[in-house]
Design a protein around this nucleic acid. Structure first.
Lengths: 126, 126
DNA sequence: TTGGCTGGTATCATAGATTATACTGGTAAC
DNA sequence: GTTACCAGTATAATCTATGATACCAGCCAA
Protein backbone atom coordinates (compact mmCIF):
# COMPACT_ATOMS: atom_id res chain seq x y z
CA UNK A 1 0.00 0.00 0.00
CA UNK A 2 1.47 3.38 -0.93
CA UNK A 3 1.80 6.11 1.59
CA UNK A 4 -0.87 8.19 -0.10
CA UNK A 5 -3.23 5.24 0.01
CA UNK A 6 -2.47 4.73 3.67
CA UNK A 7 -3.18 8.35 4.49
CA UNK A 8 -6.39 8.32 2.51
CA UNK A 9 -7.52 5.08 4.05
CA UNK A 10 -6.65 6.26 7.53
CA UNK A 11 -8.82 9.30 6.90
CA UNK A 12 -11.68 6.97 6.09
CA UNK A 13 -11.05 4.87 9.13
CA UNK A 14 -10.73 7.83 11.44
CA UNK A 15 -13.98 9.29 10.12
CA UNK A 16 -15.83 6.03 10.28
CA UNK A 17 -17.81 5.43 13.43
CA UNK A 18 -18.19 1.70 12.74
CA UNK A 19 -16.06 -0.69 14.79
CA UNK A 20 -14.54 2.18 16.67
CA UNK A 21 -14.50 0.23 19.88
CA UNK A 22 -12.68 -2.72 18.39
CA UNK A 23 -10.17 -0.46 16.71
CA UNK A 24 -9.48 1.62 19.78
CA UNK A 25 -8.97 -1.61 21.68
CA UNK A 26 -6.57 -2.93 19.06
CA UNK A 27 -4.65 0.33 19.22
CA UNK A 28 -4.47 0.21 22.96
CA UNK A 29 -3.36 -3.41 22.92
CA UNK A 30 -0.57 -2.49 20.55
CA UNK A 31 0.47 0.47 22.64
CA UNK A 32 0.42 -1.71 25.71
CA UNK A 33 2.69 -4.27 24.09
CA UNK A 34 5.07 -1.57 22.87
CA UNK A 35 4.66 0.51 25.99
CA UNK A 36 7.09 1.37 28.70
CA UNK A 37 10.28 3.27 28.66
CA UNK A 38 12.61 0.41 27.82
CA UNK A 39 10.71 -1.99 25.58
CA UNK A 40 11.83 -0.67 22.21
CA UNK A 41 15.43 -0.41 23.32
CA UNK A 42 15.37 -3.99 24.49
CA UNK A 43 13.91 -5.26 21.22
CA UNK A 44 16.54 -3.24 19.48
CA UNK A 45 19.35 -4.64 21.58
CA UNK A 46 18.27 -8.23 21.10
CA UNK A 47 17.84 -7.72 17.37
CA UNK A 48 21.36 -6.32 17.33
CA UNK A 49 22.67 -9.62 18.56
CA UNK A 50 22.76 -9.26 22.31
CA UNK A 51 21.45 -12.50 23.67
CA UNK A 52 22.48 -12.70 27.30
CA UNK A 53 21.04 -10.84 30.26
CA UNK A 54 24.17 -8.94 31.21
CA UNK A 55 25.00 -8.16 27.61
CA UNK A 56 21.59 -6.67 27.02
CA UNK A 57 21.86 -4.75 30.25
CA UNK A 58 25.25 -3.35 29.35
CA UNK A 59 23.99 -2.32 25.93
CA UNK A 60 21.24 -0.16 27.43
CA UNK A 61 22.75 2.52 29.69
CA UNK A 62 20.63 3.24 32.73
CA UNK A 63 18.40 0.18 32.82
CA UNK A 64 18.25 -1.66 36.13
CA UNK A 65 18.26 -5.43 36.51
CA UNK A 66 14.79 -5.19 37.95
CA UNK A 67 13.33 -3.44 34.92
CA UNK A 68 15.18 -5.62 32.43
CA UNK A 69 14.05 -8.74 34.23
CA UNK A 70 10.44 -7.59 34.32
CA UNK A 71 10.40 -6.53 30.70
CA UNK A 72 11.98 -9.73 29.47
CA UNK A 73 9.43 -11.81 31.38
CA UNK A 74 6.60 -9.76 29.99
CA UNK A 75 7.92 -9.89 26.46
CA UNK A 76 8.29 -13.61 26.71
CA UNK A 77 4.68 -13.89 27.86
CA UNK A 78 3.69 -11.81 24.85
CA UNK A 79 5.72 -14.09 22.60
CA UNK A 80 7.97 -11.30 21.43
CA UNK A 81 11.12 -13.08 22.55
CA UNK A 82 12.20 -16.60 23.31
CA UNK A 83 14.11 -17.58 26.42
CA UNK A 84 16.39 -20.57 26.08
CA UNK A 85 18.13 -22.20 29.01
CA UNK A 86 21.15 -24.43 28.46
CA UNK A 87 21.81 -26.46 31.62
CA UNK A 88 25.55 -26.25 31.43
CA UNK A 89 27.73 -25.05 34.29
CA UNK A 90 27.13 -22.25 34.73
CA UNK A 91 23.64 -22.18 33.36
CA UNK A 92 23.44 -20.30 30.08
CA UNK A 93 20.34 -18.23 29.41
CA UNK A 94 19.76 -16.76 25.98
CA UNK A 95 17.10 -14.46 24.67
CA UNK A 96 16.22 -14.16 21.01
CA UNK A 97 13.65 -12.29 18.99
CA UNK A 98 10.78 -14.24 17.50
CA UNK A 99 9.36 -13.83 14.01
CA UNK A 100 6.47 -12.27 15.79
CA UNK A 101 8.78 -9.62 17.18
CA UNK A 102 9.89 -8.88 13.64
CA UNK A 103 6.25 -8.57 12.58
CA UNK A 104 6.44 -5.38 14.56
CA UNK A 105 8.76 -4.23 11.84
CA UNK A 106 6.16 -2.40 9.80
CA UNK A 107 5.04 -0.40 12.79
CA UNK A 108 8.56 0.33 13.94
CA UNK A 109 9.54 1.54 10.50
CA UNK A 110 6.54 3.81 10.26
CA UNK A 111 7.19 5.14 13.72
CA UNK A 112 10.83 5.88 12.98
CA UNK A 113 9.84 7.64 9.79
CA UNK A 114 7.15 9.66 11.50
CA UNK A 115 9.33 10.52 14.45
CA UNK A 116 12.10 11.87 12.24
CA UNK A 117 9.67 13.96 10.21
CA UNK A 118 8.04 15.19 13.38
CA UNK A 119 11.28 16.35 14.92
CA UNK A 120 12.13 18.13 11.71
CA UNK A 121 8.71 19.77 11.57
CA UNK A 122 8.77 20.95 15.16
CA UNK A 123 12.33 22.24 14.72
CA UNK A 124 11.47 24.17 11.55
CA UNK A 125 8.39 25.93 12.88
CA UNK A 126 9.70 26.91 16.28
CA UNK B 1 5.85 -1.15 0.13
CA UNK B 2 4.46 -4.65 0.60
CA UNK B 3 4.17 -6.22 3.98
CA UNK B 4 6.89 -8.73 3.17
CA UNK B 5 9.21 -5.94 2.13
CA UNK B 6 8.44 -4.06 5.30
CA UNK B 7 9.22 -7.05 7.46
CA UNK B 8 12.42 -7.75 5.59
CA UNK B 9 13.48 -4.14 5.70
CA UNK B 10 12.63 -3.86 9.37
CA UNK B 11 14.85 -6.86 9.95
CA UNK B 12 17.67 -5.03 8.27
CA UNK B 13 17.06 -1.88 10.23
CA UNK B 14 16.69 -3.68 13.51
CA UNK B 15 19.95 -5.51 12.87
CA UNK B 16 21.79 -2.40 11.81
CA UNK B 17 23.80 -0.73 14.54
CA UNK B 18 24.12 2.52 12.58
CA UNK B 19 22.02 5.49 13.67
CA UNK B 20 20.52 3.50 16.49
CA UNK B 21 20.44 6.52 18.72
CA UNK B 22 18.59 8.62 16.22
CA UNK B 23 16.12 5.85 15.55
CA UNK B 24 15.45 5.14 19.20
CA UNK B 25 14.88 8.83 19.67
CA UNK B 26 12.48 8.97 16.72
CA UNK B 27 10.60 5.99 18.14
CA UNK B 28 10.37 7.59 21.55
CA UNK B 29 9.20 10.87 20.07
CA UNK B 30 6.47 9.05 18.21
CA UNK B 31 5.41 7.12 21.27
CA UNK B 32 5.39 10.32 23.26
CA UNK B 33 3.13 12.01 20.73
CA UNK B 34 0.75 9.04 20.62
CA UNK B 35 1.12 8.29 24.29
CA UNK B 36 -1.29 8.59 27.14
CA UNK B 37 -4.56 7.00 27.91
CA UNK B 38 -6.81 9.45 26.10
CA UNK B 39 -4.88 10.68 23.10
CA UNK B 40 -6.18 8.24 20.54
CA UNK B 41 -9.75 8.60 21.73
CA UNK B 42 -9.50 12.37 21.44
CA UNK B 43 -8.12 12.20 17.92
CA UNK B 44 -10.92 9.83 17.12
CA UNK B 45 -13.58 12.08 18.60
CA UNK B 46 -12.36 15.15 16.74
CA UNK B 47 -12.08 13.22 13.49
CA UNK B 48 -15.65 12.10 14.04
CA UNK B 49 -16.79 15.71 13.96
CA UNK B 50 -16.72 16.80 17.58
CA UNK B 51 -15.21 20.26 17.56
CA UNK B 52 -16.07 21.91 20.85
CA UNK B 53 -14.60 21.27 24.27
CA UNK B 54 -17.75 20.08 25.99
CA UNK B 55 -18.81 18.02 22.97
CA UNK B 56 -15.49 16.22 22.90
CA UNK B 57 -15.69 15.71 26.64
CA UNK B 58 -19.19 14.28 26.42
CA UNK B 59 -18.13 11.93 23.63
CA UNK B 60 -15.42 10.34 25.78
CA UNK B 61 -16.94 8.84 28.92
CA UNK B 62 -14.73 9.17 31.94
CA UNK B 63 -12.36 11.89 30.80
CA UNK B 64 -11.99 14.85 33.16
CA UNK B 65 -11.79 18.46 32.08
CA UNK B 66 -8.28 18.53 33.45
CA UNK B 67 -7.04 15.73 31.24
CA UNK B 68 -8.89 16.89 28.16
CA UNK B 69 -7.54 20.39 28.61
CA UNK B 70 -3.98 19.15 29.06
CA UNK B 71 -4.14 16.80 26.10
CA UNK B 72 -5.65 19.38 23.78
CA UNK B 73 -2.92 21.86 24.70
CA UNK B 74 -0.24 19.29 24.14
CA UNK B 75 -1.71 18.14 20.85
CA UNK B 76 -1.90 21.70 19.67
CA UNK B 77 1.76 22.24 20.55
CA UNK B 78 2.54 19.14 18.54
CA UNK B 79 0.49 20.45 15.65
CA UNK B 80 -1.90 17.54 15.67
CA UNK B 81 -4.93 19.77 16.10
CA UNK B 82 -5.80 23.37 15.47
CA UNK B 83 -7.55 25.60 18.00
CA UNK B 84 -9.70 28.34 16.55
CA UNK B 85 -11.25 31.08 18.65
CA UNK B 86 -14.17 33.08 17.30
CA UNK B 87 -14.59 36.25 19.38
CA UNK B 88 -18.37 36.20 19.37
CA UNK B 89 -20.48 36.37 22.50
CA UNK B 90 -20.03 33.95 24.01
CA UNK B 91 -16.56 33.12 22.73
CA UNK B 92 -16.57 30.08 20.47
CA UNK B 93 -13.60 27.72 20.62
CA UNK B 94 -13.24 24.99 18.03
CA UNK B 95 -10.73 22.20 17.66
CA UNK B 96 -10.01 20.47 14.39
CA UNK B 97 -7.62 17.82 13.20
CA UNK B 98 -4.73 18.88 10.99
CA UNK B 99 -3.47 17.12 7.88
CA UNK B 100 -0.53 16.28 10.05
CA UNK B 101 -2.81 14.41 12.40
CA UNK B 102 -4.00 12.36 9.44
CA UNK B 103 -0.36 11.65 8.51
CA UNK B 104 -0.48 9.45 11.54
CA UNK B 105 -2.77 7.28 9.48
CA UNK B 106 -0.14 4.84 8.32
CA UNK B 107 0.99 4.14 11.85
CA UNK B 108 -2.53 3.91 13.18
CA UNK B 109 -3.51 1.45 10.48
CA UNK B 110 -0.49 -0.73 11.16
CA UNK B 111 -1.16 -0.63 14.85
CA UNK B 112 -4.80 -1.57 14.44
CA UNK B 113 -3.81 -4.43 12.20
CA UNK B 114 -1.14 -5.63 14.60
CA UNK B 115 -3.35 -5.29 17.64
CA UNK B 116 -6.10 -7.38 16.09
CA UNK B 117 -3.65 -10.09 15.06
CA UNK B 118 -2.07 -10.01 18.48
CA UNK B 119 -5.36 -10.45 20.29
CA UNK B 120 -6.19 -13.34 17.99
CA UNK B 121 -2.79 -14.94 18.57
CA UNK B 122 -2.95 -14.63 22.34
CA UNK B 123 -6.51 -15.98 22.34
CA UNK B 124 -5.58 -18.99 20.19
CA UNK B 125 -2.58 -20.08 22.20
CA UNK B 126 -4.02 -19.67 25.68
C1' DT C 1 -31.91 35.12 41.44
C1' DT C 2 -31.28 30.57 40.90
C1' DG C 3 -29.60 27.47 37.89
C1' DG C 4 -27.46 26.14 33.69
C1' DC C 5 -24.45 26.63 29.81
C1' DT C 6 -19.53 28.06 27.92
C1' DG C 7 -14.17 26.97 28.18
C1' DG C 8 -11.51 26.05 30.95
C1' DT C 9 -7.74 26.47 35.73
C1' DA C 10 -6.21 25.18 40.56
C1' DT C 11 -5.41 22.06 44.24
C1' DC C 12 -4.89 17.86 46.24
C1' DA C 13 -5.00 12.70 46.26
C1' DT C 14 -4.00 8.20 44.35
C1' DA C 15 -2.17 4.38 41.60
C1' DG C 16 1.03 2.51 38.71
C1' DA C 17 5.53 2.80 36.63
C1' DT C 18 10.24 3.34 37.45
C1' DT C 19 14.52 3.66 40.32
C1' DA C 20 17.83 2.62 44.04
C1' DT C 21 20.00 -0.52 46.64
C1' DA C 22 21.02 -4.62 48.49
C1' DC C 23 21.15 -9.46 48.13
C1' DT C 24 21.26 -14.78 46.52
C1' DG C 25 23.82 -19.05 45.25
C1' DG C 26 26.80 -21.01 42.32
C1' DT C 27 31.40 -20.81 39.34
C1' DA C 28 35.85 -19.51 38.54
C1' DA C 29 39.99 -16.87 38.06
C1' DC C 30 43.88 -14.46 40.82
C1' DG D 1 40.21 -15.82 50.37
C1' DT D 2 38.87 -12.11 47.86
C1' DT D 3 37.23 -10.45 43.85
C1' DA D 4 34.26 -10.85 39.87
C1' DC D 5 31.09 -13.00 36.87
C1' DC D 6 26.33 -15.16 35.98
C1' DA D 7 21.07 -14.59 36.09
C1' DG D 8 18.40 -12.80 38.36
C1' DT D 9 14.97 -11.54 43.18
C1' DA D 10 13.45 -8.58 47.14
C1' DT D 11 12.27 -4.41 49.35
C1' DA D 12 11.55 0.20 49.65
C1' DA D 13 11.54 4.82 47.77
C1' DT D 14 10.27 8.06 44.36
C1' DC D 15 8.40 9.90 40.30
C1' DT D 16 4.80 10.68 37.03
C1' DA D 17 0.38 10.09 35.03
C1' DT D 18 -4.08 10.22 36.06
C1' DG D 19 -8.26 11.15 38.94
C1' DA D 20 -11.43 13.82 42.10
C1' DT D 21 -13.20 17.89 43.28
C1' DA D 22 -13.90 22.55 43.43
C1' DC D 23 -13.81 26.80 41.32
C1' DC D 24 -13.57 31.09 37.84
C1' DA D 25 -15.87 34.69 34.70
C1' DG D 26 -19.29 35.59 31.39
C1' DC D 27 -23.77 34.80 29.32
C1' DC D 28 -28.63 33.24 29.02
C1' DA D 29 -33.29 31.47 30.38
C1' DA D 30 -37.18 30.90 33.67
Amino acid sequence: MSNEELIRKSGEILSDPRNQKEEIQALQDTMYVMGGKWRLMIINSICNGNRRFRDIQRSIPGITTRMLSRELKDMEANKLIKRTVTPSTPVLVEYSETDYCLSFGAIILEMIRWGKQHREKIRMTD
